[in-house]
Amino acid sequence: MNRIKGKVVIITGASSGIGEATALLLAEKGAKLVLAARRKEKLAEIVTTIREKNGEAVYKETDVTKPADNQALIDYAKEIYGKIDVIFLNAGIMPSSPLSALKTEEWDQMIDINIKGVLHGLAAVLPDFISQKSGQVIATSSVAGLKAYPNAAVYGATKWAVRNLMEVLRMESAQEGTNIRTATIYPAAINTELLDTITDEAAAKGMNALYKEHGISPDRVANIVAFAINQPEDVNVNEFTVGPTSQPW
């Protein structure tokens, strides 16, 4: 059964990688998409591709670090489609480096995008999900949100935070009877633009070698997002660890 058809799905970080692959797959399955990211030209291209295949999609230039942008995104989705069923909080960066490199500006950027970006998205969408007593929040964490890795102290800390936020959201929603479903995804080596944000030379070299050997396509993660959305409303499949079969993460 296709329970995705007709659902209104917001995707942040939709201009490339996992977000883009998920948008293309969900469009094929009949979802109505609202794509969000900072690169509006790239979003426009993806929307055009979806529409050419008779899919439904719009986009909204969004900086997830700004609460007002997140609220504007929610308002735009309701203006276009009248409701919101799912939000996929997928925006994130991964400028890995050892703590001793003291790249404090990058630490702040990761906190602002990877944690605060999720919080701003939740703050914007939860009033609607609570009032309608339904909705689904999906978030991209990382295997670095499950275990510690050198060069990923701050990145991992942000992804551990996402893990905790999502688990508490699931528990509180059950206690409060709001029927909000959650799904947290912990990807390993998925070939996206994440590596482009690494400025530390040694960290970049190591990560590029790892991904070159093991990396798999982001559409593998898109399949999991679709699986989570397609579950019956009374079923919450809340955690997925996903990576290459060949990678001993």
Score class of each variant (00 low, 15 high):
I74M: 14
T197R: 08
S15Q: 04
E167S: 13
L99F: 00
K103C: 03
E233G: 02
L194I: 15
S131D: 13
L146T: 10
V58W: 01
Y149H: 11
K212W: 12
G30Y: 06
I198L: 09
G117I: 02
K212C: 12
A23P: 00
V34M: 07
I198V: 15
A57T: 01
A204Q: 15
R163D: 15
T192Q: 11
K212T: 15
E20S: 05
T199K: 05
T192I: 09
K32E: 03
A72M: 11
Y211C: 06
D219G: 03
T182M: 14
Q71P: 01
T48D: 04
K53P: 08
M166S: 14
K78P: 02
N90I: 10
T178F: 15
I84D: 05
G30S: 03
K159G: 09
E45K: 03
E106I: 03
Y81R: 04
I198F: 07
E176H: 11
V118T: 11
D63C: 12
A27M: 10
A153S: 13
E233L: 08
M94Q: 14
F227E: 09
F240G: 04
P98K: 02
M94A: 15
N54G: 04
A148E: 09
R51S: 09
S142M: 08
S97L: 05
K133S: 05
S217V: 13
Y76W: 01
A123G: 05
S134G: 03
L126H: 12
K32Q: 10
G135M: 11
T158V: 07
V235D: 06
E201V: 13
K133H: 07
K83F: 09
S100I: 02
A14P: 01
I80D: 04
V237K: 05
A77C: 07
A222W: 00
I113Y: 02
A188R: 08
T65A: 14
R38E: 01
D63F: 04
S96A: 10
G243S: 15
V47A: 00
I190R: 07
L33R: 01
V125A: 13
K60W: 14
A157S: 13
A21N: 03
L119G: 05
A222D: 04
